Amino acid sequence: MKYKDYYAVMGVPRAATDAQIKTAHRKLARKFHPDLNKDADAEARFKEVGEAYQVLKDPEKRAAFDALGTGLKDGDEIRPRPDVGDGFEYRGGGDPQDTQDTEDFFSDLFNARARHASRPRAPEWPGEDHHASVSVSLEDIYNGAKRTFTLQMPVIDDQGHVTYQTRTLDVSIPKGILDGQRLRLAGQGGAGIGNAPRGDLYLEVTLDGHQRYSVDGRDVSINVPLAPWEAALGAEVVVPTPAGQVTVTVPGGSAAGRRLRLRGRGIPGNPPGDFYVVLGIVLPPADTDAAKAAYSAMRAAFDFDPRAHFYG
């Protein structure tokens, strides 16, 4: 994704009000309209101004653009953080013509797709659905949990500046929900018009990275180090899992990289995933005379060439 400084395109400061942005758009749109301006780049500038205006006139899109920070230049490659939309609430709905050029851009920023359905033309309008991204831990997904999240909703104040309304929600994380799935909170979205009901709030679940486990769908893996004699002779090893510790039997003669499957001990579901213990072998250091003597004894005891088939 290539960065465009929409404020520079519009010729307004980052703190510009909604009214200043509208005024700048009217002026530039007239200046570069292809019917009024015959310069070779007029049409391109006209489209660029329109694209910038679609972003800066909308509080959610403008807040997302501002979240990229400062210091970027036109043409810089944008690589948004995975959590750039975390805890940030935004509306669904709107005119599809207003979002066509920037839909993919803002989907990437929020790790979610906003719906673009036109509002019904009726005296009573149901409230808009809202969307947000929330981070949960692997332990929460394994066991279920109740968590409190703080969300921010960007709005335009009376002076035309983007501000944030903050609210706190107590949310039940269901056991077995997966990364990318959504939680629906009925009636927690935008207010309806007239007697129409409120919209819903959809929370997209983002799984926190874990220093111990790796996740693939519902399967979970962990790397477990073994001493050489445990791998060679077999051993009973206590292994942590997100649901608690389990004792795993390591067969004798196990090599590094061997995967031991614990069926059904992955992320809960129907069916549940599996839990994999990936074996590694760690050599004790030869940092004492006794340790060096032990290694020398092993060398003498085994007629073993680890590279016997290396060149054949």
Rank of each mutant, 00 (worst) to 15 (best):
F65A: 02
Q165E: 06
R307N: 13
R121Y: 15
A301S: 11
R182L: 07
D303W: 00
V49K: 04
R258T: 05
P80Q: 13
A132I: 02
A186L: 09
G127H: 10
V84M: 12
L28F: 10
L138V: 11
G253V: 00
N223Q: 13
A42Y: 05
S107T: 14
P271E: 14
A24V: 02
V215A: 10
A243F: 00
R265S: 08
D76G: 02
R113F: 12
Q54Y: 05
P82G: 07
S137I: 05
V134C: 06
I222G: 07
G75L: 07
K57M: 11
G252R: 15
L178N: 10
A114S: 12
D86P: 00
R265T: 02
P174Y: 10
S214N: 12
D35A: 10
R307G: 08
A297T: 06
T99G: 11
R30L: 14
V250K: 08
L183D: 05
A19D: 06
R113D: 14
V224G: 07
F88Y: 06
R26P: 00
F105Q: 01
I177R: 04
P272F: 14
S254W: 00
L56M: 00
P80R: 13
V215T: 11
N270K: 14
H25P: 11
T166W: 05
G69N: 00
T249G: 08
A114Y: 06
P285S: 06
T206Q: 14
K175Q: 14
R212L: 15
G71R: 08
F275T: 01
F302P: 04
V277Y: 14
A196C: 15
V134I: 10
E51D: 11
P123N: 09
V277P: 00
Q245V: 03
G127D: 12
L203G: 02
Y53T: 07
V12A: 05
V136H: 01
G269Q: 05
R299H: 09
D305C: 03
D18S: 14
L283W: 15
A114N: 03
N143K: 11
R299C: 08
Q54R: 06
V9E: 09
A227S: 12
G257W: 02
G257H: 09
L68K: 02
G190D: 12
A63Q: 07
G266P: 08
D108M: 06
P174F: 04
A297K: 14
R115L: 08
F310W: 13
G244A: 10
I193W: 04
G253N: 00
T166M: 10
S221H: 13
L151I: 08
V162S: 04
V239E: 11
G160W: 07
P80G: 14
G160E: 11
P242H: 01
V250G: 03
D108Q: 10
H131K: 03
G180H: 05
R113S: 10
Q20P: 01
A145Q: 06
I78D: 04
P242D: 06
R198N: 15
G194H: 09
N195I: 00
G199S: 07
D208M: 10
H210N: 15
A15S: 15
E204S: 15
A256L: 01
E51H: 11
A300R: 12
A235M: 05
S221Q: 07
P59T: 13
